[in-house]
Each structure stands twice: as C-alpha cells, then as structure tokens.
Design a protein around this nucleic acid. Structure first.
Lengths: 129, 129
DNA sequence: CCGGATCCGCTGAGATACTG
DNA sequence: CAGTATCTCAGCGGATCCGG
C-alpha cells in the first residue's frame, strides 16, 4: 500500500472513510484506467496509453504503480524481447466498479447543471436578520 | 464555480466525468463537511469547526468557500455583532449524498481489507511466458 | 465570531532525455 | 516496448498574524 494511503487510513479512521476512497481513486487518469480495465479485462501498457489521451509514459507508469501498490490492479511482466506488461483489475479493483460508475454519473450531472448555471446568477446568499 | 473545476469540466469532457466528482468532492474535510451538513441541516462556522477535528479556521474557510463556489453549499451571513454565518447544503450538494455514502462504504471496505492484507504477502505478480 | 492577508513546505502532474 | 532519471512548476494544506 502507498504511504499516503496508509497515512490517511490510520489518521482519519474516525469520521471520514470517504477520504480514503478519494485518496485511492483520485489521481490523474486513475478513474479512466480502472474503467478501461473493467471494460477490456486485460490491457498492455501501450494500449492503455493510446486509449487514454496519451499521457506521458512517466505519468502513466506512476499512476499504474500507485494503483498496484494500493492493490487495485495486478501487473504481469512477461520477460521477453520486446518486453510485454499486462494490467488487469484485482478483486479489490473490480469491487470499485459500482463506485466509479456513480462518480461518473454524478460528475456528468454536476457538469451539466453547472454549464447551465453559468447564465443565471443567483445572489440571494445574504440575509439580514 | 471554481477555476479548477471549470478547467476539469471543459478539458476532460470525454471519457472521465468521474474526475469531475473527485475534483469537486476531493479536498481536505470536504466529504466530512458535506456529510455533517446533510445530517444536521444547518451549521454555523464554529460548530463545523468543532465537529471536525479542529482544522485551522483559515483552512476551513477555504474549503467552505470552494464548496460554495462549486455550488454545493449555501452561505448565509447575518450582519450582526457578533457575526453569525450559517452553512447548509444546496440542492446540488444534497444530490451528492448517495455518492458520499458510497464513497464512505467503499473506503471502509478498502481500509478493512488492507489492514488484513498487511500480513499476507502475495508476490505472484510475475509470470514467465 | 468569522474570517482576510501572507508566507511556507510538500506533493503531484508534466516535459525531456535516455535505457534493457 | 515499457519503462527510468531528472527537473520544473503549480497548487494545496497548514501556520501565523491581523481585521471588522
């Protein structure tokens, strides 16, 4: 498990396990990676890179390592030339699928309402008692 | 809406609305704040501070402002001495309640499995084809 | 009582160049 | 093909001091 994840789990044990989820799933490309692996089953490093909007190899590597360290994905290295590395969801990673779906749904809803709300300026947020 | 939120909404319109949710809900104390407001209905600044584990006033203020800018909470200022400021969920903020619940549920699950997994070291993540 | 202004340290995204 | 090694740069969380 990543140090960051561990810190959050142990320091916040009280009220806010939601922060744990965000710590694990929040990170550039991570929701996309998990969703793609859920859809495709198994993907190679290069395939993931192309399916996402071409993140730097450095960045993609780091996200994948973090997801691996946090136990969400499984990395399989085939020692051959040229090298071949496959990624797939772990059981834990697969268990996040419904949550990812909800995140997407609410995100879509939010983006929609905010695009409209840009027009109507409501400034009734001050009351005089 | 915050600049950051707007950026994410417009740059990532494609695949990953989950990142929008995380951008909006992810931030120190934010899930807790939203959950507390959901439970209590209306809370004053000081009450929130005490219910959370006493974040710096500065920090709490910033989180509340961001949530307000993103349209999730409503801030009501009573112009009196001493000042009084109340916070409550907007409709949009209330709509995130189920999502927050799922985040918490999965976070709890995750924290549980990881605490056990610390013992069993599985290193079957290399195959030779 | 509820903040605003200011400064700081860290982490995390991204770019660039190189390697088994 | 699938990375690693360095670097930079921005942003957030946090602390401290001041203000209406």
């Amino acid at each position: 498990m990543r140090e960051k994840t561990e810190r959050i789990i142990h320091e916040w044990t009280d009220s806010c396990d939601a922060e744990v989820s965000i710590a694990v799933l929040g990170g550039a490309w991570k929701p996309s990676i998990l969703t793609l692996l859920g859809e495709h089953g198994v993907l190679r490093f290069g395939e993931l890179g192309r399916l996402l909007k071409d993140p730097t190899a450095r960045v993609l590597t780091r996200q994948l390592r973090e997801l691996e360290d946090d136990g969400l994905i499984i990395r399989t290295v085939y020692r051959q030339v040229p090298p071949k590395v496959e990624y797939r969801l772990s059981e834990l990673g697969a268990s996040a699928a419904p949550l990812l779906a909800e995140l997407t749904t609410w995100g879509t809803l939010y983006a929609g309402t905010q695009r409209e709300a840009s027009a109507a300026k409501t400034d009734e947020n001050e009351a005089v008692a």
